[in-house]
């Protein structure tokens, strides 16, 4: 069946290069999450603001992010913005695409988390003499972060997996891009991509476990 000799040595020799790529992958994922969380908080605020324009903007963002493929969003950032004379490098396009996607999903998570906290708690806080900001800061926000923490870490894993899409817009420094470049040079597709798969798996698991450990420390009470 297998008239093929596996050359794992070549792949292992390229491991340092791929690990450098993995660092870029992690960097993009972290940055996109950071931007995503900030945008998502803003979007959640917009939706709660009661202003129709802001609410419409936020809803449009969230629905587009959730109802089109992530790859489409990256294409949009890379090719679509060219119409306006904005030419993003693959790195920026990938970052923008993933951050847009993250923000949409996270905004929905945050809204769900906010909904899960009864209004009565805010009112109780207010009647104890807290200002609206204090009630939000000391009563709603801590609970919201606790509820939204797990979905947010899931989104982080998703962001890591999504970075691999950069290779379709010519990204060649992240893990998938480096692997593809090595593959184009040697045609050892299976070996290189199998190694990349292992690295992705390890990163994803490490993030999940780290998040779990962090959650058990942070949310002890």
């Amino acid at each position: 069946m297998f008239n093929y000799t596996f050359h794992w040595n070549q792949a292992l020799k390229a491991l340092p290069q791929m690990l450098d790529g993995a660092l870029v992958t992690l960097q993009i994922a972290l940055l996109s999450m950071l931007i995503g969380v900030i945008c998502a908080l803003a979007l959640t605020g917009f939706r709660l603001s009661g202003n129709r324009v802001l609410n419409g903007f936020a809803t449009t963002w969230v629905e587009i992010a959730r109802n089109t493929p992530a790859l489409f969003q990256i294409y949009m950032a890379h090719f679509g913005l060219g119409n306006f004379g904005i030419h993003l490098s693959p790195y920026t396009a990938l970052l923008v695409g993933i951050a847009f996607n993250n923000a949409g999903y996270l905004a929905e998570n945050f809204r769900g988390a906010l909904k899960a906290i009864p209004d009565t708690q805010t009112r109780a806080g207010r009647s104890l003499g807290m200002t609206a900001v204090q009630a939000f800061r000391y009563i709603v926000l801590p609970q919201m972060l606790r509820i939204a923490f797990l979905p947010t870490t899931n989104q982080m894993v998703w962001a890591i997996l999504m970075t691999s899409l950069g290779v379709t817009v010519g990204m060649n420094t992240d893990l998938a891009g480096v692997t593809q470049e090595l593959n184009a040079r040697s045609f050892r597709t299976f070996e290189f991509f199998a190694l990349a798969a292992v690295i992705y798996y390890i990163i994803a698991k490490a993030v999940t476990l780290a998040a779990r450990a962090l959650a058990s420390r942070m949310f002890r009470y």
């Binding site: 297998f2 992705y200 798996y201 994803a204």
Partner: peptide, 23 residues
């Protein structure tokens, strides 16, 4: 769990490489 923790793109490339290796 592996199928959920490895990017789909990588899975596709791997499967394609595998099917050509295995003829």
């Amino acid at each position: 769990d592996v199928f959920r923790s490895v990017p789909l793109l990588i899975q596709l490339v791997l499967a394609n490489a595998f099917q050509s290796i295995a003829k």
